[in-house]
Nucleic acid binder design. Structure first.
Length: 373
DNA sequence: TTTTAATGGTTGTCGAGGTG
DNA sequence: CACCTCGACAACCATTAAAA
């Protein structure tokens, strides 16, 4: 199938959200749209990633520059700080760019839509989005971006910014350094999945690998010559590790999953000691291997390595083959899951199996669930 | 009166070079 | 590496003058 011009569906996003308490008219006309764009940029990340309104939001210069020049945004940011609309902090939360957040009363005020009309701003926003599309070199990324642009929102969907972003076809897509694909759907709160339509399909299934990263970790560690308890491998392959770990801590599966991921991601130094001891007691060899690895390669985080492996298998292999073999089948990816209509479930499952056979020496459990449930 | 051209000021773009 | 400053130039816009 010929991939249509992706640039054709790039639309500059003319709607931003600003606090009702903020009156753009305090600024000179030429700065109003830019100021509103920046206020939106601050609240957008808070909405997208579920941060609180008190959270500091990093606004790297590279990002601001996609919309306007330093000579434009700098005076505006200064004025907004002077007017006590926003405040700034260098390096909040370990970021090495400047971070901003709203000040009261704007912070707790409701958000209202504001339409950007400033031509130069719209032009730069468009150019940036086109650049993002151009940067998608891999055919699989282009296909995924194309299917993403067929996403619509059901009529009865609530009027919330997350869904509004999709309604307006403001489809952003970022391939991070680890090869994972981030979109408006990967950060969509679960409760809104129900309203998503992919190429018109409302019944979408998630075909995912249980304990994807741990499967890859176990296999990879063994291949690198580290010992891993067979118990650990069995639990991982059967998809029971989170339950077991949660039970050992006396909490439910979800909390167990959370604790386990934090534990492994924090190695070798930043982790919860009691949780570490529980893990060590359950799986002494695996614990030892993880520790040894993370100490010998302190700069190459185990977690990041696993994320790289995960995207290599799920995106580079499974999704890639899927788009190649079934170019007319809609497909979305949510990190360790392929999301497809009913007609694609079987193909997705077999391609994930193939991908694991190629990159991994164990066979994981593959789950098929209704994604929109 | 309408159209076109010239003018000058403002705003936007780009890149070299500098800082910690 | 991320951020900042500055200057040269381009693009844009409104006003005015000239021509038809």
């Amino acid at each position: 199938m010929v991939i249509p011009d992706l640039k054709a569906d790039v639309v500059p996003n003319t709607t931003v959200y600003i606090p009702t308490t903020f009156d753009p008219r305090v600024l000179v006309p030429k700065d109003r749209d830019c100021a509103c764009w920046m206020l939106n940029a601050i609240t957008q990340d808070q909405r997208r990633y579920g941060w609180t309104p008190e959270a500091w939001v990093p606004l790297p210069q590279a990002f601001l520059r996609t919309a306007m020049e330093y000579s434009v945004y700098q005076p505006i940011l200064r004025q907004l700080q002077g007017d006590r609309v926003i405040e700034m902090d260098r390096g909040a939360g370990g970021e090495n760019c400047r971070c901003y957040r709203l000040l009261e009363p704007h912070r707790s005020a409701k958000q209202v839509a504001y339409t950007i009309t400033k031509n130069t701003l719209l032009k730069r926003m468009y150019r940036f989005q086109v650049g993002v599309v151009d940067a998608l070199k891999e055919p699989v990324h282009q296909s995924l971006r194309r299917w993403l642009s067929t996403v619509t929102v059901a009529d009865d969907g609530p009027d919330v910014p997350h869904l509004d972003e999709l309604r307006r076809k403001d489809f952003w897509m970022k391939v991070c350094d680890y090869g994972r694909i981030h979109t408006g759907l990967t950060s969509l709160p679960k409760r809104y999945r129900h309203f998503i339509r992919l190429a018109g399909h409302s019944e979408l299934y998630a075909v995912d690998v249980s304990h994807c990263q741990f499967v890859l970790m176990a296999s990879w560690l063994r291949r690198e010559g580290y010992a891993v308890d067979s118990d650990f491998v069995q639990q991982v392959l059967g998809g029971r590790l989170y339950d077991t770990f949660g039970a050992a801590l006396g909490v439910d599966r979800e909390k167990g999953k959370d604790a386990l991921i934090k534990l492994v991601y924090g190695l070798p130094r930043r982790y919860n000691r009691p949780h570490g001891e529980v893990f060590q007691r359950l799986y002494p060899q695996a614990w030892d291997s993880c520790m040894t690895y993370s100490r010998s390669y302190p700069h190459e985080h185990l977690s990041l390595h696993m994320q790289r492996l995960e995207s290599k298998v799920m995106i580079g292999s499974a999704a890639h083959l899927f788009t190649e073999f079934f170019p007319d089948e809609p497909l979305l990816t949510i990190h360790d899951a392929l999301v497809v209509p009913r007609s694609g479930v079987f193909s997705a499952e077999s391609l994930i199996k193939d991908a694991f056979d190629t990159h991994c020496d164990v066979k994981p459990t593959i789950k098929k669930t209704l994604w929109t449930a």
